[in-house]
């Protein structure tokens, strides 16, 4: 409410809200970008788990982070050929 009335009066956005927005973005990146080794490990372990259920070539798994605005998404790409027949193993 405050803000919209201020905007009616043609006020510039508060510098504190700009600071907060910029910080949120940069900290999300700081938190996630630090650890390349963790990403490699994740990719490796993910591949191991997925291999139990699906048939695919081991090197095709791609794990990456996508930043969009203020949020960050973990994306895992694994083009699989077909699912294992799990009933056989039972």
């Amino acid at each position: 409410m405050n803000i919209s009335i201020r905007q009616l009066f043609g006020r510039k956005p508060k510098s504190s809200s700009i600071a907060k927005q910029r910080l949120k973005l940069v900290i999300t990146q700081d938190r996630l970008d630090v650890d390349d080794r963790m990403m490699m490990r994740l990719q490796h372990e993910l591949t191991e788990v997925l291999a139990k259920y699906f048939e695919f070539s081991m090197n095709s798994v791609q794990v990456s982070l996508k930043h969009e605005g203020n949020s960050c998404t973990l994306v895992a790409d694994f083009p699989y050929k077909k699912a294992h027949d799990l009933s056989v193993n039972r």
Partner: peptide
């Protein structure tokens, strides 16, 4: 400074 919008308040800092 918080009052006039030039400094983040405690809620902003905690949120981050």
């Amino acid at each position: 400074l918080v009052g006039n919008g030039s400094m983040m308040d405690q809620a902003d800092v905690m949120d981050i």
